Amino acid sequence: MAKHSWHVVAVTFLTGWHPAGANGAQLEMPAESKAVFQLTEPLASYTLPLGPFRDGGIPGKTLEGRVTKTAWKTENPIRSTMDLLVPLRDQLESQGFAVLFACESFECGGFDFRFATPVLPEPEMHIDLGDYRYLTAEKGEKAVTLLISRSSTAGFVQVIEVDATGVTNGAEPSSETASPALPQPIQTPFTAQTPTPSAEPLKGDKLLTGGSTILDGLEFPSGSTTLPDKTYPSLDELAGWLKSNPKLKIAVVGHTDASGGLDVNIAISKKRAGSVRQYLIEKHGVSAAQVEAEGAGYLAPIASNLTEEGRRANRRVEVMVTSTQFQP
């Protein structure tokens, strides 16, 4: 295992940030680490994952109490996620916490597991969907989950802590506390970008002459591959156009930013495109033979992946005509 120097920090069971020796679990983080995000909810619920993603969900146990979410970033590259996990796991076990569940990326359930459990947003918490580790530990009415991943230049640790001590139904949130003034990023859902600043309705002639068109107004909640059940004008218009031209065929193509591995991003983008296809077929009765769903992952960016604005623009769904002969 790679050698690191470590410094002691206390996790925040009921008491916020503390020096070593305070009550609660004591976790040592690498000395080059820094806390980049923290959010404390005096009274909330959190479901502890107790198994991998299967049959549409993650088995778990829900606790109610003080929930604290913290993201740590170590600026130096790490050899493996195991290098970060092992010292933290050993510390928890030495303090009486029992490990209830632990897994590694694909054995956890890959992107399905990651999207079914809370994850703090980029860039404070980065997840490589092909290289992450998860751990759930419990001690009495206190519990900790660790989510660990890395990029080519940094390591990332998410710590979620729950203290259910003394919580009863109907209890009022405590007013004492407070987390330090760390950055609190806005968790923005995926929203498909418009091809131009003015949001014009989708027009069939643009598809016939313009190659591909970005579908406007598609909203996937953070981490989801399913469209919420609502109305999407761009898809409604596309459906009408397809039904008026039943011999025409199209491909709906999902795109992602460059976070994570290619295979996983292709799978995610294809699932999102599949949700659009399903909307056209189920909501409007478009022929299934007219629409195919594909995923390009991060292979066709329209903006830089080095900025959040660029990554947001790259997360989109496009439509293109695949018919090579068509008479209106």
Rank of each mutant, 00 (worst) to 15 (best):
G51Y: 01
E75F: 01
T225P: 11
T47C: 08
Q38A: 06
N305E: 14
F190E: 12
I186H: 10
K283P: 13
G65K: 06
A2L: 11
E138N: 15
D131H: 12
K271T: 03
L235V: 07
V291D: 07
T188V: 09
T213I: 13
A31T: 15
G16I: 06
A20E: 02
F53K: 05
F190S: 07
F53D: 04
L48P: 15
L218A: 11
A137Y: 08
S224R: 09
G24H: 07
L248Y: 09
A199F: 00
G285F: 04
A192D: 15
S244M: 03
K206W: 04
L215Q: 05
I214S: 05
R311I: 09
I268A: 14
N314D: 05
Q290P: 08
G56H: 15
P201Y: 02
G24C: 03
C103R: 05
S80K: 08
G96D: 11
I160V: 10
Q290N: 03
V319W: 06
D163W: 00
I302Q: 11
E292F: 13
L235C: 06
D205T: 12
P118N: 02
P121N: 09
L238G: 07
G217P: 04
S94K: 05
T213M: 06
E176K: 13
R315K: 02
P59N: 05
E64G: 01
E122H: 10
G57K: 11
T213G: 00
L85A: 05
G110E: 10
Y132N: 00
V67G: 03
Y134T: 09
L27I: 10
G211D: 06
S151D: 09
Q193N: 12
T168H: 10
T322S: 04
V321G: 04
V67K: 01
P328F: 13
S304E: 09
I127W: 01
G24P: 13
G297E: 02
S304N: 15
L27Q: 08
P77E: 10
V99T: 11
P328R: 05
G155N: 02
G21D: 07
A71D: 08
K69C: 02
E93Y: 00
V317A: 12
S259E: 14
H18C: 15
Y46I: 08
Q327M: 12
C108Y: 02
A293F: 15
K142S: 11
E75D: 08
L120F: 13
D128H: 02
N245I: 13
F13E: 07
A171L: 12
L238V: 04
A71W: 03
E294D: 11
I127D: 03
G51C: 06
G130M: 04
D229A: 07
Q278V: 06
S275A: 15
P173Y: 10
S174Q: 11
I302N: 09
G155F: 00
D90I: 00
S105R: 03
F220P: 04
D205G: 01
I268S: 07
K34P: 00
V159E: 04
F220H: 13
D263M: 06
Y298K: 11
T324W: 08
S151K: 01
G56K: 12
T165G: 14
Q325V: 14
S259P: 00
